[in-house]
Design a protein around this nucleic acid. Structure first.
Lengths: 228, 228, 228, 228
DNA sequence: AATGAATGAGACTTCATTCAT
DNA sequence: CATGAATGAAGTCTCATTCAT
């Protein structure tokens, strides 16, 4: 997590007498952190177009002019937030995925990890949920994001492969399953992220359906009695 | 001069600057249709905030001022499009739902109906997909939409109830299942609506998973999934 | 006063069977009357700039397009109303003036006539009160009104002359007195016209002051006022 | 680049298109002063509705956007100008009033003070004269002005009371006299403020009439005025 | 590094007027 | 005579961005 970007200028003086060890976090890097964090929040909540530079500045506790010391434009800030977000998320996802061996296990582990992160910092999930719409509404974003967006695809493709290897999934169903995952991912971020409880419930429902626990097709006769 | 619906295409300009006053051969109802249709397209594609009055006027083949003969404001136009959309969709959905008796049958029939409608007029589905984000980004929309938004909930609750009656679903799973439906609906409209083929595939994947055909848990040696 | 307010719906048939004698007032002339009357009201209440053509049309029970059958423009309508107003007022004023012989008598008679007219049709007085401001705010009006505005001056100059003839006023005070009349006229139309009661009171106060009944300078120990 | 106050004069354009960003040597307080002053001028001359943002900006030597650094809206600017005006006027009025003891003395002192202020800065008086019409034409103004408008009433009520105390006025005539003052005030601001000379003359005429010097009723043979 | 005054482009909206019907 | 759809110009306001300080 890169710390730097001191934009050439050193912090002019160290308030306190220099202590040993790690040099003090420059004020600059704190401001940068505040800007990114505030932006993630606002973008996630209201989307790129509805957030003004003034909002962004206020959320970071600076003025609009100051923003331009840290980013080149509002668009650039959005891209920065996106990059930062991806770094945070995929580490956790990878870790979760590796802890399990079956498709179902990996899927559940990853969804749980996503939920944990949502609990720790909801702005992250909300931002992810906003990206799709923003990309469609503001073509500049899609262009600037470029390849960054296919990472997710690759990641979940890996999980599907694990399911094939374990025998849970037939090779010919891979494409279908991947589509399904894409689908629930959209639902989980765009739709269910604004309430922790709701997201928890949604994840559980997905896992139940995937396990075949939620719906049992009635075999022959149309309306039989309740099953046990 | 309606005719259009070329949405966004400036069209080939009848070089001569239009005279003032009422153009020949206009029919109010056609223009109104052109405005609604163009707006549905644009809103669905780029969202409320990114579509300008100029865009809307151009898509309907009129000037921005003319818009205000038909609606009171841009917001009002959005609401109008929404109302129109609901009328179109729910008739079809109800019809589809009634044609089947099981939960799975009803679900599939409704999703297929949605897909058919998407094929007939993609702007409808795209608009539906845009509404959620727009509502979050522009509070005025949520306020004006009011109760109109809960209709969907009620409709799908009915389907779940049918599943309980038929024995496919346990009563205690109703809430979970409803959450699942919400989820895939979001995924199907927000995420998969921009490509017919993709949406078809997504619907199939959902039905396959729901039927238990897509994933078969390996019975014996599966590592237990941890839970946060 | 014009039947109407059916806004858009034609009177389908002339209720009563045609009577003999004078040909019926064409609908046209009734409409014209309605337009002038409605305009006088609106202009008097809100001023030229704040009244829209739509307001004017609605007040007359027609559509904006119809307005242009009767006047050439909004400005033209204003001028028309003004001309109509002057015709109505100065007949009454002249009559009142001629009924008295002294300056005080004439002044009171005229102010009373003004008050009577205000009672009969307040829109007239309100319109008069609005003209000054409108003229200043919209130079086109002043230009179109042209000489029409000096009529008032001439009229009141005549009354002052009568005061000189009767011995109530010294010739060298003529200019001063005319200025005074101008002043109270402004006050009586611009300021006091919106409440009949108030206008009555204002007129009485003016007459009382002019008669010397309202304020009696204290003869002996008054600090001399500075300034001429 | 403020400096100006040329109100309405486009000034001689420094041919080169202005660069973006903050111009050199700006002082916020000067610009604010220029905006208020220019607005007072324009509003006073043409009224709220006829003055555009572009006019206001040009009069202050800035662009329309810059206006919104200082006020929240055109309406807000109007209110601000009004507040500023009241502050300036009532100090002077109070001072003038306290310098005299009789009703006539106080009245003359106050009117003279008004005239002096008109000479020093005519925009002030013109603005006062415009307020009544603006309030009637634009209800928002009346609402925003709120209590600020009754101050004048209170002030002149005080002068009338002084007249009662000094014996110049009978208690039962108080209401009548107050109405008279209201009347001449309207006449003096709305009607006579656009020419210094005229206003001087109008004030003199009022004082002469109040003193009983201008009109002497002919004692014996006066025809009685009729009354409606 | 930070401020905040200022710009300029463009958004939404209103309105007098025109004109085919 | 009357309608009302439509125009086009103008008005109020917003906002990303720049730049002197």
């Amino acid at each position: 997590m890169p710390s730097v970007i001191l934009a050439g200028v050193e912090a002019q003086h160290n308030e306190a007498p220099r202590r040993r060890g790690r040099p003090p976090d420059t004020k600059s890097s704190e401001t940068r952190e505040a800007i990114l964090s505030g932006a993630r929040n606002l973008f996630g909540e209201r989307g790129y177009g509805s957030v003004t530079n003034k909002d962004l500045a206020a959320a970071a506790g600076v003025t609009t002019g100051a923003l331009y010391h840290y980013v080149e434009s509002k668009l650039d800030l959005y891209i920065e937030v996106h990059r930062d977000m991806q770094g945070r998320i995929y580490g956790r996802f990878q870790e979760a995925e590796l802890s399990q061996e079956t498709f179902i296990g990996k899927l559940e582990a990853v969804l749980n990890a996503a939920h944990d992160m949502n609990r720790e910092d909801p702005s992250l999930t909300k931002f992810v949920g906003a990206v799709r719409a923003d990309t469609r509404r503001h073509p500049e974003i899609g262009e600037s994001l470029g390849a960054a967006m296919t990472d997710r695809e690759r990641f979940f493709l890996g999980i599907v492969e694990a399911g094939i290897a374990s025998g849970e999934v037939r090779r010919q169903d891979a494409a279908l399953l991947q589509e399904f995952i894409r689908l629930i991912l959209v639902g989980l971020t765009d739709g269910a992220s604004h309430s922790l409880q709701r997201q928890r419930c949604a994840i559980d429902s997905v896992m139940a359906v995937v396990r075949g626990d939620l719906v049992r097709p009635v075999p022959k006769s149309s309306l039989p009695a309740q099953h046990a």
